[in-house]
Write a protein that binds this DNA or RNA. Structure first.
Lengths: 247, 247
DNA sequence: GGTTTGCATTGATGCAGATCAAACGCGCGA
DNA sequence: TCGCGCGTTTGATCTGCATCAATGCAAACC
């Protein structure tokens, strides 16, 4: 059923896995060749589970196209999304055998994968890959901690605005956006958003429509979002905008 | 005012910073010597801020004794603790100039510090330090994500039980505890707990006393906690106890 | 001893968001 | 074209926790 073609795989995925987020200038030709040897692509349909929590992980990799979530579930069914996977994000944990979370594709998704064992061996032999991975992990840690503030202290409206703000920002940087209204496709169902934000899907629906009524966002259909004024959205999210007042 | 003496500094802090959590078997004599040259101790009183968010970080290090928090504050004063710092935890972020969070000592605290610049240089020359740091950061990331589930989906009572459970577990492993009731000093004020759990201090107080009334915990004074049955506490926290049912 | 000061507890009340319940709308296969 | 199913919206009601306001209580200081 997957409608993704190999032709759609972005060019920049050709080389170093680390290049997805930021160019790794120190990757040498022979390293790239080695990486190419252990590299392969996998495609997933919307809704498909990529990895089950507890399963043996046999690869690491990064998202090339599409969106996924890292999800944790309690015995009684309460669910929390603990991470969003947007294009360029890294998945997998070197040095750990089994997955800690469910990884689910929320849209049709292409992953660039590396067999775990050879990748780990390469990490040992190539120090700057470990160093780059450390940077990426520290970024993820910052993101997780920022999200703790969202979950612990923000109102439903602020939570929604925070989520939209994050997706909008990522989308804008990915497409080298320069000023003007930002437009993007919301890659999550109301339920997935609720699970990310610690809300119910009903509350998500109500708050999104409230933001729409008040002109903070515009909606075409249920998923296509336009943000006419990003600063306004940030303000709704409760982020320090501070417009450069900081020293 | 600090009543901590040099004599109280634990022995195992003498060598590799990475040794605090787990012995780093690969540290060689000359590396240890190098680390010793850039190492120094700092003590802080309860309530003292170790680093202000936005400040220049001039050291990294790990907690030797005492407890601290990483805190994020919104403009309007809402506060969220995004990380607990227990003995052996690492503080600071190699490769970043300024601190992202307030670091606050909640009890009298001893830190083992390394000047940041030389430490970073050492990291480049000594790959396994970066690798060890990567492991530690991945552990922290897991902890942060587990906490996202707590913040997003658990009830006030479960939140309290989760916090007690974490502190109890850390305390038990640190003191090589073997069976029987666990006893420890709660290192946080009601307010700090509230800020960690995304609650108000009143709710924290009520729920703690509810757990006490129902015999899940015992209290001596306001801080000294006894956990007669750790499994019972885990259950209250909503953790999968599963007692070995899992394959 | 009295007073201050800084947590912690306790009680009364209100509200944001959960829960329960229905209906809508839209794509898709028969 | 119909109707089925899934994601979404909308409405009515309930409730867990926040909020506001005292009060308690022990250590520190005069």
């Amino acid at each position: 059923m997957s409608k993704l073609l190999v032709a759609e795989i972005p060019r920049e995925c050709g080389d170093c896995p680390i290049r997805h987020r930021a160019v790794c200038a120190r990757c040498e030709a022979d390293e790239l060749e080695l990486l190419d040897q252990i590299k392969y692509y996998r495609t997933y349909e919307a809704g498909q589970t990529i990895v089950w929590s507890g399963d043996r992980m046999e690869f690491v990799g990064s998202v090339v196209k599409g969106v996924g979530t890292l999800t944790q579930t309690m015995e009684d069914g309460r669910r929390q999304v603990v991470g969003l996977l947007l294009p360029s994000d890294f998945v997998g944990r070197p040095g750990r055998e089994t997955a800690t979370y469910d990884v689910v594709a929320t849209t049709d998704t292409v992953m660039c994968c590396f067999r775990k064992k050879p990748f780990e061996e390469m990490m040992v032999r190539t120090p700057h890959i470990a160093q780059r991975l450390l940077q990426m992990t520290l970024d993820e840690l910052d993101a997780a901690r920022e999200w703790m503030l969202v979950l612990g202290r923000k109102t439903a409206r602020e939570k929604i605005a925070s989520l939209l703000s994050i997706v909008a920002r990522r989308d804008a940087t990915l497409n080298l956006h320069a000023g003007g209204p930002i437009e993007f496709e919301l890659p999550l169902t109301r339920e997935a958003m609720a699970d990310y934000l610690g809300l119910t899907l009903e509350t998500v629906s109500r708050q999104i429509n409230a933001l729409k009524r008040e002109g903070v966002i515009e909606l075409k259909g249920k998923r296509q979002v336009t943000v006419p004024d990003f600063d306004r959205l940030s303000e709704e999210a409760g982020d320090d905008s501070d417009g450069g007042m900081l020293s």
